[in-house]
């Protein structure tokens, strides 16, 4: 399996390197792999590529964590209070349907060329999948389990920590996986709209100077940030949810 994936990667690289020339596609449309690699090295040396990558990654992680906490808290509150959900649901629905990246220009007007608009877009975009999943999980808990706990004289806090919280974790992590990929989108759009740092800025810079290789490098760096975040989530999930059927390692 692993060998197959690796072989495919080699084939892909070869096609990328020699394919454009063979099919007559000019380098400013698809620069060959070697040119992108050279561009990568040049950007490391001259364009502070690592600095911009770190800025973007920082914003992604901060936005992700804040959006995750907010989504979880609101998900629990709405899940436990049907009245609150009933009153708030039209607004939540409207906000959920609104394309979150469209808020980027607004946030830039509000906060200028700082890290805040980017983090804010990420928070907004991460919030929904987490909130919806936690809310659904709290609602799906078998009321008889809660009755059982109450028959043992459990307090409200005990019901939360012993039942509601652990029961919400599998859907919570499913929400986080979706959110991890979305967080990168949110930050990049924020950077494209208004900023002079980060990978989104390099994207617009590369576009403006007709440097296709630079755009390729930046896209790859963004993807790597997304993969690392997603991988971290999966790793934590496998630790926390080790009890899920199908996750158990044979003893």
């Amino acid at each position: 399996m692993m060998a197959g994936s690796l072989a495919l990667f080699v084939v892909f690289l070869a096609a990328w390197e020699w394919g454009p020339a063979l099919t007559g596609i000019p380098p400013f449309i698809i620069p060959p792999a070697s040119q992108v690699w050279n561009s990568f090295l040049r950007m490391l040396a001259n364009d502070q590529l690592m600095y911009h990558t770190a800025i973007t990654a920082f914003q992604v992680v901060i936005g992700f964590i804040l959006g995750m906490i907010l989504g979880m808290v609101v998900g629990f509150i709405l899940g436990m209070s049907p009245t609150a959900e009933f009153i708030l649901s039209p607004y939540i629905l409207a906000l959920q349907i609104a394309p979150k990246v469209a808020f980027a220009p607004l946030f830039v007007i509000w906060f200028g060329y700082t890290v805040y608009p980017k983090i804010l877009v990420a928070v907004l975009i991460v919030f929904f999948p987490v909130m919806i999943n936690v809310l659904g999980a709290v609602r799906a808990i078998d009321p008889d389990i809660v009755r059982l706990a109450k028959s043992f004289n459990a307090s409200r806090t005990q019901v939360f920590w012993k039942i509601e919280f652990p029961a919400s974790l599998p859907p919570f992590f499913a929400g986080l996986r979706i959110a991890a990929t979305l967080a990168v989108i949110g930050v990049v759009v924020g950077e494209i709209v208004g900023g002079n740092t980060g990978l989104g800025y390099l994207l617009t810079y590369g576009e403006g100077s007709g440097n296709t290789a630079m755009v390729f490098v930046t896209i790859i760096m963004l993807t790597i940030i997304g993969i690392l975040l997603y991988g971290a989530i999966v790793m934590i999930e496998n630790r926390v949810l080790h009890w899920l059927p199908g996750r158990m390692r044979p003893a």
Partner: peptide
Amino acid sequence: FMLQKDLLLPWRTIRENVEIGLEI
């Protein structure tokens, strides 16, 4: 009380499930 459904918590081992009442 005990119901038709076992109401065991999937994230707890059997021992932890048996202990939940005492734990509470």
